[in-house]
Simulated assay, not measured.
Amino acid sequence: MKSSTTARPALKSAGILSTLTLAALALAGCGAAAPTAGDTATGGAASTSCSVNGEPFSTDDAEDSIEYSELESSLGAVPEAPEDTQIGSIMKFLGNQYWVALSDGQKAAAEKYGVGVDVQAAATESDQVGQLNAAETMLQKKYTMLVSPQTDTNLCPAVEKAEQQDLLVVNVNDAVLPGAKQWVGPNQMQNGVSAAEFVLESAEEGDQVAVIEGQAGVYAAKQRTAGFTTTAEEGGLEVVASVPGDWDIAKARDAATTIISQYPDITAIYANNDGMALGVAEAVNAAGKKGQIMVIGTDGVEAAYDAIRAGDLTATVDSYPYLTGQVSVNVAVRLLGGQEVPRAVYTPQALITSENVDDAPPTLD
């Protein structure tokens, strides 16, 4: 980090996007892939979560939405779930602490509400076919489905079949089904905005920053990148590189190594998730620049918290996966009980630094 620790007033205020700018960014960045030839056509059979009528669903600025903390006051108590309710949860990859924490939250809420939950996931973060196969298997068991797709469309064949059988499907975080009927998760663009605003607090005009992106074509990666890039540039920073890391720690480390070599005066690197941020931190340490280059991640996994305590990671934007898992089951049980839940249910997020790393996280309990 540069020796100057006081942000210029113009820089700091410029990092905060107006509501209108944020909404416009969300619409421009959503860009969900169009359904494949096998998807339901908008003019044919009944609409499904993979059908697109007009613009693909942008969760970050959904009009029909509610904060998770307002569910109880708005809708009342969680109703009793129908007898023998079974929930099938399709995770992206359980080798990532984020998805482990999210699934743990789902299991805790399922026990609280007296429903069964079966969690399955792909073998890797990019095993789209394996994730679809897991969803197809669950579909045969007639489960209520909580899906966290690897891309915006890779689970569409299973989702369409589920909804044609009148099975409930709730899209939980990260990739967003093009026409998702129910969605639970944080504002993805705000993840990137918060990271950029943090950098701007101690940056000088013209400072160089970079982004390590998640998997190409995934809603969360596009939104987080857009939020960071636009906020940083509007604040007077120069985004010198924005390259894919595919959620992979090794790819992120290699990309960061190249960026640091090309731009030795770089001030900060933002990674779209914590796993990649840890890879960036390895590259920063190897270059002998620990404490000189800010490294910011997103997700709030335990390893990121440990890295912040050790000084290897500067910050992370925690989107509280355990709580998000709890809320996803809460929403599913409400819908099964006949309540009319808004289309998008927002869960919280917060910037975590060495100053608040030991604060207790929020839960639904």
Rank of each mutant, 00 (worst) to 15 (best):
E201K: 13
A271Y: 03
D299E: 15
I259W: 04
E204T: 04
P178M: 00
V301R: 11
L336M: 04
T40F: 08
Y320S: 04
A303Q: 15
T225S: 02
I87D: 04
P244V: 04
G288H: 12
P361M: 05
A28P: 08
A315W: 09
V239N: 04
N96W: 00
T363G: 07
V159H: 01
T324Q: 09
N273M: 07
A281P: 08
G325R: 02
S18V: 07
Q349K: 10
I87V: 10
A62G: 01
P186Y: 04
D60M: 01
G297P: 09
A303Y: 13
L132G: 03
K222G: 06
V52M: 03
V129A: 09
L146S: 10
S103F: 02
V170L: 00
K92R: 14
I352Y: 06
A62R: 01
P362L: 10
S126L: 14
P9Y: 00
G114C: 14
A62S: 04
S47F: 09
G38K: 15
V218S: 00
A256D: 06
T353L: 08
F228G: 09
G214Q: 11
C50R: 09
A77L: 09
A196N: 04
T298C: 15
V239C: 02
A46N: 06
L132Y: 06
A24H: 13
Q208Y: 05
A123L: 15
A350L: 13
